[in-house]
Each structure stands twice: as C-alpha cells, then as structure tokens.
C-alpha cells in the first residue's frame, strides 16, 4: 500500500481512493497529497464509476477495499465502467482468498479470480509476497486498461527474488520442471516451495512456475515448462471453477488439442467456507498445506489412470 504513496510522489496522475479503510490508511500520503487521497464512503459501485470518470480525464486511480466488496458488490461497474471503456483503474483488493478467515464467507474472496478473469480487457495479478507486490506496483503506472491486484495478508514469507525481475504477464520459473510441474499464483507459491522440498526428499523432482499474472496467462512459459513433465499441478486459493487451474487447462487444450498432459487441480472445494480460524488453518483443512499437496501429487503419480477430479475430492 505504501507503494501507492511512492508512486504518487513520482507521478501526479496517481490517486488513492478508499471506501472506508482502516483508520490511518496511507496517512503520510493523505498529509503530503491531500487532494489525491480520497475516502469516498462505503459505496463501491459509485467509487468504481467515479474512478472511471477520473481515469477518462487522465488520472490513475488506485481503488482499495476488501476484495469481496471490490468484486462482488460492484461487478457491473467493473465490467462496464472500467472494462468496456478499458480505463487504467487499479483495483487493490485486500484479503484475497481466505485472509479474512475469521470473518466468515462474506469476507472470503474465493471466486474473485474467476469473475475478474472473465471480463474482457481486465488484467489479474496475484503477487506472492510484499516484495513481489512492490515490483508489480512499479509496472502499474503504464500498463493499459484495468488491473485487479489480489493482495494477501501481508507479512507472508518473502520467497520472490529480485533477480527474477517482474513483468506483468510473464510467469517466473522458481524451480526448473522435473517429473512434476506445479503452477502457482499468489501465496500458494510458498506452499509449493515447501511441497517441492518434501517431494524432493521422496526422490520426486518438482518444478514450480509462478503464474503471478493469471490474465493474460503466459502461454509461452507454460508450454515451455510442461515439456517432459509427467504431471502438471495447479495450486490456488480459490474455488475450482474459473481460476488458475481452469486457465491452465484452457490454455493446454487450446495449444495442444489432443495429447494433453496429466493434470491435477488443487484448489478450495466448490462451496462457501463455513469454518473460521486462520487463512493457514483453512488452507490446511482443505488440503492446501505443503504436506497435503505433496501427498496428493504422490498419489496422482502413483495412480495416473485416475482422473484428477477423483483425486481432488476428499
């Protein structure tokens, strides 16, 4: 979030627009650039439309609130005011996935990637950690069209690396593909790295392709990375429909036709979460902790004739 202040200092087009964020959000920016730090009330539909108007006049609004309110509440405004007009508004979504676990299903963004990805002109990015989010923000000044940025909790282990660089729409090979290729987005990268270590201890080499940008999906990197692997695994903190796993499956079908590689989609189940606890405890509960991921991959390798949906259901 502080990146917005830094960008505002460099580029006078940058605006911060919050609905009713936590007290003191971007306080330093509100002092230095009071005219470009706007708090507009719990009125997401209006805020998106207003941001469209501001973007039509050359501003770069960074709109920030909780992910579910920025997607479900004002979907028509996002679709029409932002995507149909193809305006450079940045949607900074707090609490992607299960971050708000204790607050229940109204606050858990579990289908946001699917519904944002479905919109023409929308770009969808899910950084894995704060360093990667900061690198992403550098690229948001000049990217055309709207961007949905799914932020995690903050304080996640830093696993992204500066030497990998960052470009919107360019996947990052975190580990070279082996028997298995895991494709991750957001904070599933941390789980995949730990799962890869567990698999390595069992003699299974697992590569990791970090697909921080789910749309546009980096088809070239994906097609390169699947060469010679026995199993492609998608990992996402999202329902099975329409997210990263769907995007990968669609891309493989579109580019390969027949001869598809074996694929395992690991995701949340197709239901609202009626459990609380923490993001981490819910991920564990739904078999998205490293141990469960490694075990699911081992099972899949051992039983390649089973369909991934059978393997997925628990």
């Amino acid at each position: 979030m502080n990146m917005i202040h830094k960008l505002a200092a460099r580029d006078e087009r940058v605006l911060y627009i919050g609905s009713d964020p936590g007290a003191g959000t971007l306080r330093a920016m509100s002092k230095e650039f009071p005219d470009r730090h706007l708090i507009e009330g719990i009125s997401e539909a209006h805020i998106i439309g207003m941001s469209a108007g501001l973007a039509m006049e050359g501003y770069l609004p960074y709109v920030n609130t909780i992910a579910t309110f920025l997607t479900r509440r004002c979907y028509e405004q996002v679709a029409i005011d932002l995507c149909l007009h193809n305006l450079p508004v940045r949607l900074i979504a707090n609490g992607g996935g299960l971050v708000y676990a204790p607050l229940g299903p109204t606050h858990q963004a579990i289908e946001d990637i699917a519904i944002m990805r479905a919109l023409p002109n929308m770009t969808v990015v899910c950084p894995a950690d704060a360093d990667e989010a900061a690198r992403l923000m550098e690229h948001t000044l000049d990217w055309p069209g709207p961007i949905y940025i799914r932020l995690a909790k903050g304080g996640d282990a830093i696993v992204s690396k500066a030497e990998h660089g960052f470009e919107i729409g360019r996947a990052i090979v975190m580990r070279s593909p082996g028997d298995v290729l895991m494709v991750t987005t957001g904070i599933m990268l941390q789980r995949a790295l730990a799962a890869a270590d567990l698999l390595a201890a069992q003699g299974i080499s697992a590569g990791i392709l970090h697909m921080h940008t789910v749309k546009p999906l980096d088809t070239e990197a994906l097609m390169r990375a699947i060469q010679g692997v026995k199993l492609v695994v998608s990992l996402e903190e999202h329902v099975p429909a329409g997210g990263l796993g769907s995007a990968i499956a669609e891309t493989l079908i579109d580019n390969l036709g027949g001869g598809l590689p074996a694929m395992l989609r690991l995701s949340l189940p197709d239901r609202f979460m009626h459990n609380y606890g923490s993001q981490d405890s819910l991920l564990k509960k739904h078999d998205l902790a490293p141990g469960s991921i490694a075990a699911a991959i081992q099972r899949s390798l051992a039983a390649p004739e089973k369909s991934s949906s059978q393997l997925h259901s628990t």
């Binding site: 207003m50 941001s51 469209a52 108007g53 039509m56 006049e57 028509e76």
Partner: peptide, 17 residues
C-alpha cells in the same frame, strides 16, 4: 445502458475538472 452508472462517472469527470 445499464442504469445507475452515469452520475458516478459524472462525479469523476467533475472532480477531475
């Protein structure tokens, strides 16, 4: 065409001015 959008866009345009 979808209703209830124009005034918010207008607020953005007017604020930008």
């Amino acid at each position: 065409g979808a209703l209830g959008h124009g005034l918010s866009i207008g607020v953005g345009l007017a604020l930008a001015a």
